[in-house]
């Protein structure tokens, strides 16, 4: 007999086979001495185990055993009594965590949109920028690099520079706009 047949035989002994299969198995066992021997062993084993579970006595006093159970129950109940507040806070945090996340993303999106929009406005303004110099004594020369995002203004004293005919020889001030 192979293992599959042996397991089926056991299922038959245990009354786990459907009726039709159980009938087939009964017929099979009748003509098979090996199967009959195995069925005999399975029935002997089932027989001596039935109702003979080993007994075990608690190795400590009943009072001590109960006192530990009672203490554990009381401790659990204290935790449970605190739990409603804690669980409310926990539930609130659980609710707020995704909302906070969404709010943060929305805030960053709006912020970055405004920054870029401001930058593009600034870029446009840079293109149009003009240095208006109202001073009669000081002249100015401006330089702008779009690729470097840089705007430089040189200021010079008109009388000195114009006299020397060299406007960038002694700049009095320069400003970098980046």
């Amino acid at each position: 007999m192979n293992l599959e047949q042996q397991l089926k035989l056991q299922a038959w002994v245990d009354g786990e086979l459907p009726e039709a299969e159980a009938r087939q198995m009964a017929a099979f066992v009748q003509g098979q001495s090996e199967a009959q021997t195995l069925v005999g062993e399975l029935r002997i084993t089932k027989g001596f185990l039935a109702g003979n579970e080993p007994e075990a006595k608690l190795p400590e006093s009943g009072d001590f055993y109960w006192s530990k159970i009672q203490r554990a129950i009381e401790q659990e109940e204290k935790v449970a009594a605190r739990a409603p507040g804690a669980s409310w806070t926990f539930a609130w945090r659980r609710l707020m965590a995704p909302i906070s996340g969404v709010a943060l993303i929305a805030f960053l999106s709006v912020l970055s949109f405004n920054v870029f929009r401001q930058q593009s406005v600034d870029d446009g303004a840079n293109l149009l920028v003009e240095v208006e110099n109202l001073s009669e004594d000081i002249g100015s020369i401006s330089y702008r690099s779009q690729s470097e995002n840089m705007f430089v203004v040189y200021l010079y004293k008109k009388d000195v520079q114009e006299a020397e005919n060299d406007p960038i020889a002694e700049p009095v001030d320069d400003t970098f706009l980046q």
Partner: peptide
């Protein structure tokens, strides 16, 4: 208590574990 302890002991084969699990 003895029956519940006995079941825990028959499965665990260890007194301390059986006492703890039966109490739990």
């Amino acid at each position: 208590r003895d029956k519940i302890y006995a079941r825990a002991f028959s499965m665990m084969r260890n007194e301390d574990e059986a006492v703890d699990l039966s109490q739990e």
